[in-house]
Design a protein around this nucleic acid. Structure first.
Length: 270
DNA sequence: CTTCTCACA
DNA sequence: TGTGAGTA
């Protein structure tokens, strides 16, 4: 019985595939102690340690090629740099996952918010938000696939963000998405009237808008700024035939805006 | 049981 | 960076 072991024994011992060991060899990271007369690779105790090191560095996300140079020519300086780089990479990955987590909770939260379908209207105090414009829709133009590609690469992560439609001249629309910093359009902080609704056909939108203005008028809300139509893409996620919209308009800050300390005293109109 | 090579994610 | 199939 030899002291050295075969590749499959080594693989079982280290909980890796035989393939993987040969792959490391191809990359120059791990050479067998010797190859037997039957062409079998044989591994001794040194190779076991070596493989353990390689596996550890792989867990840190260091590429096998890099392990080759760092373990063989063995410059501790370089090895340290590799680990530092790997650390930077995992921090980047953590950020990525945190953003993903945020997206998921947003999707879930929006569903909760959307479910109170009793009274679509509601008054909100909103912080300033900033919008960046990414496309202009000419009057009567419908959004088509062609327009999206002709528009150039500047289409945002479409349908991961809510699309804001703001009228720009007669019949024309500008399309925006939310931005971090002040951009092409700003919604100032203030009181807003909002209505959320679920719509099956685009034709339902127009009457909803007039109804929105009617509602504002009968409640003496002064709307000065343009109406913002928000297409909430998350909410259509699980009901493809329906679109969720929010109508939003800032209330005139100059108007006396009879202080409403509670906003649930309207139930007369629908 | 091993080897190698190739195609595939 | 590996995996799986097929071969000898």
């Amino acid at each position: 019985m030899k002291n050295e072991i075969t590749i499959s024994e080594l693989a079982r011992l280290m909980h890796v595939s035989v393939h993987q060991i040969r792959y490391f060899e191809e990359k120059g990271a791990l050479t067998p102690a010797y190859t037997d007369s039957n062409q079998y690779r044989m591994y001794g105790i040194d190779e076991i340690y070596r493989l353990a090191h390689i596996l550890l560095l792989r867990r840190l996300g260091i590429p096998v090629n890099a392990i080759q140079g760092c373990t063989a020519s063995s410059s501790p300086e370089q090895g340290q740099h590799l680990v530092q780089q790997a650390l930077l990479d995992v921090r980047f990955e953590i950020r990525r996952l945190q953003e993903l987590e945020q997206l998921m909770t947003n999707i879930l939260n929006e569903r909760q918010n959307a479910d109170h379908s009793s009274n679509p209207y509601n008054l909100q105090r909103r912080r300033a938000t900033y919008l960046t414009r990414w496309m202009r829709l000419e009057p009567l133009a419908k959004l088509t696939a062609r327009q999206l590609v002709d528009q150039g690469g500047s289409v945002p992560n479409l349908f991961e963000a809510d699309i804001h439609y703001i009228e720009d001249g007669p019949g024309a629309m500008n399309l925006y998405t939310e931005a971090e910093a002040p951009g092409d359009y700003s919604l100032p902080e203030g009181e807003y009237l909002s209505a959320r609704m679920l719509i099956r056909e685009e034709s339902e939108l127009e009457p909803a808008i007039t109804q929105f203005y009617d509602y504002a008028a009968t409640h003496d809300y002064r709307i000065t700024a343009p109406l913002i139509v928000i297409e909430r893409s998350y909410l259509s996620l699980f009901s493809p035939d329906k679109l969720h919209y929010e109508l939003l308009a800032q209330l005139d800050p100059a108007a006396p805006a009879e202080r409403r300390d509670h906003d649930d005293d309207r139930a007369d109109h629908d």
